[in-house]
């Protein structure tokens, strides 16, 4: 495996990790607010907060980690995306700032106000929408390059069918992934009331998820045929993804093996996400930037890979500890600790 491929695989894996943990967090924020205004708040808040409070900061780090790694391995990304993404990037940054700080203000402050919950819920939908535009732009067709200057064509971006289908998929996925996880978590907590509500959310967001995925398939075939045809070459990954989707929904429907059902959800996205990513290669920004011409020098690549391996040796045990104490500790989940 070349350094380029190794680098992008590692980064893609981290981005996938971010998609999962951030979706749980974003969706939880939305459900938190939604249940408050529909009067079901008290039933589900406990489950949501018990999970979110110790891990919210960790979620944020996944994104920074992916982003810094991307700059390290592929410095030219900074030039292309940095120049074009000033406005969407700044808006996403502001939303992330609002979300992170108001979560902390709300959570660690003594007074619980509905408007901080609103901020937390609304940003949870706007952030994935604004971040997903990066993937949209990477398909090409939205950037103008003239006299060495790159700029983003906003008119095209906002009127494009593909762009909107990605935004819809991003939002729907967030709600689906989050509801599935919280269903499992509520089940673990033995909180049947919360479980019933969250299970209903999970099931009702499942059909929209699969519809939105087909929508993206359809629109990508119009927008970037080359990418679409490479995705067809990898169609087994998308078929597997769909099967895991069916499995997950079946288990939630039947209220059986909910831990396994969430693993199926993760596999559903793992296959779809890597299928999409692998078909996207070698381009980081179609057609201007590929992983081969944007790659860093060899010395830096080796240094980063060594750091990465050493860092994982430190992080994985720490993450396991965090998980054992909070996510997988029955006593904690049930509120006994």
């Amino acid at each position: 495996m070349s350094y380029e491929l190794l680098g992008i695989t590692v980064l893609w894996t981290f981005l996938y990790g971010y998609v999962i943990v951030a979706s749980i967090d974003f969706g939880a924020g939305f459900f938190n607010y939604y249940t408050t205004i529909t009067g079901k708040g008290p039933i589900v808040h406990k489950v949501i907060n018990r999970y979110l409070s110790p891990v919210w900061e960790v979620t944020n780090v996944f994104l920074v980690f992916f982003y810094v790694g991307l700059l390290g391995f592929f410095p030219s990304v900074a030039y292309y995306y940095g120049t074009t993404l000033l406005i969407p990037g700044s808006i996403a940054t502001i939303l992330l700032c609002i979300r992170g700080s108001y979560y902390a203000f709300h959570h660690y402050g003594p007074k619980k106000a509905t408007w901080t919950q609103f901020l937390y819920g609304a940003t949870g939908l706007f952030i994935p929408a604004s971040l997903s535009t990066v993937l949209t732009i990477s398909e090409g067709g939205y950037i103008n390059v003239s006299n060495g200057n790159v700029s983003l064509d906003y008119g095209k971006l906002f009127t494009s069918f593909y762009s909107w289908s990605v935004i819809i998929l991003a939002i729907v996925s967030v709600l689906y992934i989050s509801a599935c996880f919280l269903t499992y978590y509520a089940h673990k907590a033995g909180d049947t009331e919360a479980f019933d509500i969250l299970r209903k959310y999970a099931l009702s967001w499942s059909l929209p998820t699969i519809l939105a995925s087909f929508l993206v398939f359809l629109s990508i075939s119009h927008h970037n045929w080359e990418h679409f045809s490479r995705m067809l070459d990898l169609s087994w990954m998308f078929i597997l993804s769909s099967l895991f989707f069916l499995g997950a929904v079946y288990l939630i429907w039947k209220k059986q093996r909910l831990g396994l059902s969430f693993i199926f959800v993760m596999l559903q996205y793992a296959f779809a996400f890597s299928g999409y990513g692998a078909a996207h290669l070698p381009y980081l920004l179609y057609p201007y930037l590929s992983i081969y011409d944007g790659f860093t020098n060899e010395a830096m690549a080796i240094a980063l890979i060594i750091t990465f391996v050493a860092g994982l040796l430190l992080l994985i045990p720490s993450l396991i500890l965090l998980m054992r104490l909070f996510v997988f500790s029955n006593q904690y989940v049930q509120g006994k600790k």
């Binding site: 900061e57 780090v61 390290g72 993450l319 965090l322």
Partner: peptide
Amino acid sequence: AAGHTIALPLFLETFAFFFEAIFLGI
């Protein structure tokens, strides 16, 4: 330019921050 030359400590910083965030949560 920084990506080519000084990305290593930037990358290391995220690890340090990651480590800190996990244990602060605990």
